[in-house]
Design a protein around this nucleic acid. Sequence first.
DNA 1: AAAACCTCCAACCGCCAAGCG
DNA 2: TCGCTTGGCGGTTGGAGGTTT
Length: 253
Amino acid sequence: MRPTNNTGIGLRKGAWTADEDILLKKCIEKYGEGKWHLVPLRTGLNRCRKSCRLRWLNYLRPNIKRGDFGEDEVDLMLRLHKLLGNRWSLIAGRIPGRTANDVKNYWNTHLRSNTKHKKESKDNESLQHTMVTTIKPQPHTFSKTIKQYMADNPRIVAHNGSNILRSSNDGVNNNLNTTLGSILSPNVLLDDNINQYLDDLSFNDRENEMNNQIGWSFGGSVNGEASHVVEQEDDYNVLFDFPVDEAMWDLTY
DNA sequence: AAAACCTCCAACCGCCAAGCG
DNA sequence: TCGCTTGGCGGTTGGAGGTTT
């Protein structure tokens, strides 16, 4: 693990000791989660708030499942990843006992190369399968201008900018800026437009429909974030009502 | 036996959004 | 409105331990 050392500001880094774990655990049990900036003060730990929070969430929290992932967990992870992309916290939220870090690590060490190879091989085939594409739950970063543009030209925007539906991180916004650059001047790519566009869409019925199809619900929010997913079937997006001819993944694996 | 290489995963880093004064 | 603080996230790092040569 990382070397245990003191930084210039005197905060301890690196692997946690058993004593530190005990202090942190007692603190959380006494005061509850949250107020992470107070944890170092309450425990006397010479750790930053982030380090305390991460240690609790990834290791000390009750009901965390250790050890290898079961077949069912891997299966679920693969399906969720196809729907959500690298939204590890959302994926972990659907796999009881597993943390986002666990899921991310497992994916990076066990599954990423496999799926990459499969995707590459699939790319060489004529795909006839059900496809899926995802929307990252970050609609609130969209610009007003682009939102209006999409509202006025939903099919054009969606088709040409299909990458926006499966982007990662801040991807919706970033990919819009990238993929729509050829059809929109840069100065109109303001976040709030797409926001309003998405706000105007009715997700609920589509979500329920999809939830029924996959057997569990994406509805509402996870950690306060809206988590909208779009089912793609037969080259047609059932939510946005436009064809998506690329930027999709095979639902099977 | 030991050096080189590989894999795993805990922990750190940087960024972002929300909340607040 | 602005700047600061805090919580939270995904990407990346690098040490420990295992495996291969």
